[in-house]
């Protein structure tokens, strides 16, 4: 069992190492996420009162889009020089590849999310230092749900013509509950509400995370064959 966990960590660590050396993913994801927020700002009057109501939605659009950008790369970068073949030949369970990839994608998106938050606070003139732990909890749960299905679909889209176009089409409808729950919970946290008020959204996120992590774990075996 510990060998299994170790192999997962190895894969995730490999991805992180590649990223540290090439720095191709995080930069573009970060810039994109900030850009989305700036562009959205143009859609509304500067300093309007309703900005705090739309802010959570804008934050999540930015985070989800930049996460998709990263997901698109996760397997296509392995295609170079047949690295995917190598991964599949490695002496570990196929699901290990899935968990390793999920872990590394999760870490990337989490880094981006945490780095986006200060910009979010500045752009929308929000102060949420006090409720930061709750906000981080929502971010961790939502990003995890998004990434767990996203990694599976990335494995699908990499073997497909026009895969980069198909991935968002597959991913977004499935992720509707995650996005709604994340936006609603974030909105309530920024309003300074208590945990009881948005606990049902956390439950939805938790439910989604558990169900789709398990389904993806089973389904992944079928996707990377041949």
């Amino acid at each position: 069992m510990s060998a299994y966990v170790k192999s997962i960590l190895h894969i995730a660590l490999k991805d992180l190492k590649v990223e540290v050396r090439s720095k191709e993913k995080l930069y573009s994801m970060m810039v994109f996420s900030i850009l989305v927020m700036v562009i959205f700002n143009f859609a509304f009057d500067p300093g309007a009162d309703y900005i705090s109501e739309v802010a959570p939605g804008i934050l999540w659009v930015a985070l989800v889009f930049s996460a998709t950008l990263g997901l698109n790369k996760t397997f296509s970068s392995e295609k170079d020089q047949d690295c995917l073949q190598g991964l599949m030949l490695a002496p570990l369970d196929r699901s290990g590849i899935y968990f390793g990839k999920t872990l590394s994608n999760f870490i990337f998106s989490l880094i981006i999310s945490v780095m986006t938050l200060p910009f979010f606070a500045i752009f929308f003139n929000l102060n949420f230092i006090d409720s930061l732990p709750q906000l981080l909890l929502v971010i961790v749960m939502a990003i995890f749900g998004f990434i767990s299905v996203g990694t599976l679909f990335a494995a699908i889209s990499v073997g497909v013509k026009r895969g980069e176009m198909i991935l968002p089409l597959l991913l977004f409808p499935i992720e509707v509950p995650v996005i709604i729950a994340a936006v609603k919970a974030t909105g309530m946290i920024l309003d300074g509400r208590m945990m009881v008020d948005y606990s049902m959204w956390l439950k939805i996120l938790g439910l989604f995370d558990v169900i789709f992590l398990m389904v993806s774990f089973v389904a992944f075996d079928y996707l990377l064959e041949e």
Binding site: V149, V176, L207
Partner: peptide, 17 residues
């Protein structure tokens, strides 16, 4: 795989909406 995931997603989508 998509057929299975899509169907499992429906009740959760309904709940959240």
């Amino acid at each position: 795989v998509l057929g299975i995931i899509g169907f499992l997603d429906v009740p959760i989508v309904y709940r959240s909406v």
